[in-house]
């Protein structure tokens, strides 16, 4: 029992820590690309703390208050169901009682709970943002899960542990053995991280900050916190599935950072797409690629 508690806290703490450092790095990176100095690497931590210590927070009814709690609970649950390390008893959380499809669905539980809060605020801009978010989700989820399904078919299991165990060395990484699956799911994965070309939903100034329009003070702090943790959980999931997982914390950080760098590099270079362009893009390029790889790797006898 005690083990579970320590483990859970370690996972939560680590996700938070990595989360704000990664985002801090992202802001630095972005700034350097734009030839600026950029903020300190801890800037996201400062922002987050500032919001958590605001002295005033407005709510619009009980559901509005519970929305951020649901999204936070969803994020932490996700974190706890993703195994962070391979062949270790630490940083496992409850991942033994979950699987890949469960994790993918857990990723959306929180945002949907928060959508209720946005709705109950009565701000039409927020709801507009939610609708855009759901629309984008509709676009990205299809190729994303298709990419993961290719891996599931390859290993005939939905368990993240089993898939990690099947990739002992570089030559067996799914990135190497099933590169098509990686290509299919990487862009939707970026969109699920709210990264730049696909960030029309929550981007500031775009429909007035989207779903977050009415959130202020400490509730906004909660939303920021869960976002950072969720980002790390998703990165770890992809590192587990395609980069063979990690046996040490340093390896984990290196792999997730590499993935993060990839997303950061792509998102600094491309301008934002409209919602329907995003959906259309996902249904054409990544999904088309997905169909090709299904035909190439599953339909034909040589596979």
């Amino acid at each position: 029992m005690l083990h579970y508690f320590i483990d859970a806290f370690a996972m939560i703490g680590m996700s938070y820590f990595m989360g704000f450092l990664f985002y801090g790095f992202y802001r630095q990176f972005n700034a350097r690309v734009q030839r600026r100095w950029g903020p300190s690497i801890f800037q996201n931590f400062f922002d987050n703390m500032k919001f958590l210590f605001k002295t005033e927070t407005i709510i619009h009814g009980p559901m509005f208050f519970f929305g951020p709690m649901i999204i936070f609970a969803g994020a932490v649950t996700t974190v706890l169901f993703v195994p962070y390390l391979k062949d270790s008893i630490w940083l496992q959380g409850f991942s033994q009682s979950g699987n890949m499809i469960l994790i993918v669905y857990l990723l959306v539980v929180g945002p949907l709970g928060n959508a209720l809060a946005v709705g109950s605020s009565g701000n039409p801009f927020g709801v507009m943002g939610v609708t855009r978010g759901l629309t984008r989700l509709m676009g990205l989820e299809v190729p994303f899960l298709l990419g993961l399904a290719l891996v599931m078919v390859q290993h005939e299991t939905a368990s993240v542990h089993a898939i990690m165990a099947a990739q002992p060395d570089f030559a067996h990484w799914n990135l190497v053995t099933n590169p098509l699956a990686f290509l299919v799911m990487i862009l939707p994965f970026m969109a699920s991280q709210h990264a730049s070309p696909f960030d029309v939903v929550g981007a500031p100034v775009e429909v007035y900050a989207g779903p977050r329009v009415e959130f202020s003070g400490r509730l906004l702090g909660i939303l920021m916190t869960q976002n950072m943790m969720m980002t790390v959980a998703k990165l770890v999931l992809i590192a587990d599935l395609f980069l063979g997982g990690a046996t040490t914390i340093w390896e984990l950080i290196a792999k997730t950072f590499a993935l993060f760098l990839l997303t950061a590099a792509i998102s600094t270079s491309f301008p934002r797409l409209r919602t329907e362009q995003t959906v259309d893009f996902f249904w054409k390029i990544p999904l088309g690629l997905g169909v090709i790889s299904v035909i190439a790797t599953i339909w034909f006898p040589w596979s």
Partner: peptide, 19 residues
């Protein structure tokens, strides 16, 4: 923007008054 870069002081634009 790049020339004066207020973000290095932690100053950044907010979209709505709530934030």
């Amino acid at each position: 923007t790049s020339r004066f870069d207020a973000e290095r002081f932690g100053i950044i634009g907010a979209a709505t008054p709530r934030q």
